[in-house]
Design a protein around this nucleic acid. Structure first.
Length: 370
DNA sequence: AACGCGGGGCC
DNA sequence: GGCCCAGCGTT
């Protein structure tokens, strides 16, 4: 059975709900887009060559993260881990430290695991095969298409938020881009639109256009190479697109954080669990505040550790907003007595060593105060 | 299909 | 405050 044919039949089913696409000249779309991209293309660190490893690292970092944020992380990361082998041989703590502050830390853990898999099963070469590439941890539909097109010049769709924004406007597609099904519509459309000879420039051009011109609010339509063929612009409805359902409001959580110093001047830290929020990162001991909990933190801790803790100083409270949570932290510094016994998942570290461990930003805000 | 998962920049 | 971002894995 012809696999390509079956894929295209599926594409047709997705696309037939989008009646307007016939009105746009695909040939002009390609030409306008790629000509524009050639003239404005930014000189980004991962565009120096098509090294699949560097393309891969950059695409993982760029997930849900803006270009300007990624650049310094990418440069440091590649300097520290220049090859798949170098990354595969690194300790996870090192990799997380290199990712510290970038967020979505499962990206780093998955990339590390995937590179180990590449070293073990693919002789250290990033697979060219679609199925093999897609089987690697952290490589989903978008990243698969990005690596296939940018590193290997294969005509695969790489549909991200930029692409959906641009295409939803040019073709007036009013499906909710939060839904997975909607991404399939755009992938089907890109399979028809993509320049078979220049898939890399086509995909990157689409994303570049979304980032520089076809912005979420205040798109710069007067500078847009697709202005003459953009259906939403013709109808002056470009700012109503794309349609996107609203995110839930963040849940608020209150914590106590204890910075505990030993008589030798060491600091108590703990490693977070290997799953869930901020997995495997380090932090100062932290407990959630509950109404029933004692209001005096030192009493609670002294009982918990079966020894007296002398409160030294109240630190400035820390507020930190995640995409789905808001942490409010009351931080207190304590001096421990010699009889203090850390818990299983905790240990004392020299203040100098704190810098070698990856702390989530809210705990960095506490750390900065000591 | 819905949800959990960071952090910074912008308005 | 709310919204945005070169998404993915789990359930």
């Amino acid at each position: 059975m012809n696999k390509n044919k079956s894929e295209h039949t599926k594409d047709d089913n997705y696309l037939k709900h989008v009646s307007q696409i016939d009105q746009v000249n695909f040939l002009n779309f390609r030409r306008y887009l790629i000509d524009w991209y050639e003239t404005v293309k930014r000189d980004l660190p991962w565009r120096k060559n098509q090294d699949p490893y560097k393309v891969w690292v950059s695409e993982i970092m760029l997930q849900q993260t803006q270009v300007d944020t990624v650049i310094p992380y990418f440069d440091r990361f590649i300097k520290q881990f220049p090859t798949p082998a170098a990354l595969a041989n690194a300790e996870e703590d090192q990799v997380l430290k290199a990712w510290e502050g970038l967020g979505y830390y499962s990206r780093a853990r998955n990339l590390h695991a995937a590179v180990k898999e590449v070293a073990a099963s693919y002789g250290g070469q990033v697979p060219v095969d679609k199925e093999e590439l897609k089987s690697l941890k952290g490589i989903g539909p978008y990243t698969l298409g990005a690596i296939m097109s940018i590193a290997y010049n294969q005509p695969e769709p790489a549909v991200d938020g930029n692409v959906m924004r641009v295409l939803s406007r040019v073709f007036i597609i009013e499906e909710d881009i939060k839904k997975v099904k909607t991404r399939h519509i755009f992938e089907a459309l890109v399979r028809r639109l993509i320049d078979q000879k220049r898939p890399s420039d086509f995909n990157q051009g689409l994303m570049e256009l979304g980032a520089l011109i076809c912005k979420p609010t205040k798109p710069l339509c007067e500078e847009c190479p697709l202005q003459s063929i953009c259906l939403a612009h013709q109808q002056k409805i470009e700012t109503t697109l794309p349609v996107k359902s609203k995110a839930k409001k963040q849940k608020k959580l209150n914590y106590y954080v204890a910075v505990i110093e030993s008589p030798e001047g060491k600091i108590l830290i703990e490693k977070r669990p290997s799953e869930g929020l901020l997995a495997n990162l380090y932090q100062f001991p932290m407990i959630e505040q509950t109404k029933t909990d004692c209001s005096l933190l030192s009493e609670y801790l002294s009982a918990e550790y079966d020894t007296n803790l002398n409160q030294e100083q109240m630190l400035e409270p820390v507020k930190h907003v995640f995409s789905h949570l808001i942490w409010s932290i009351d931080a207190v510094k304590f001096m421990a007595q010699a009889s203090f016994i850390p818990k299983e998942h905790q240990r004392w570290v020299d203040k100098k060593e704190l810098g070698d461990l990856a702390f989530p930003v809210p705990h960095q805000k506490v750390l900065r105060q000591i």
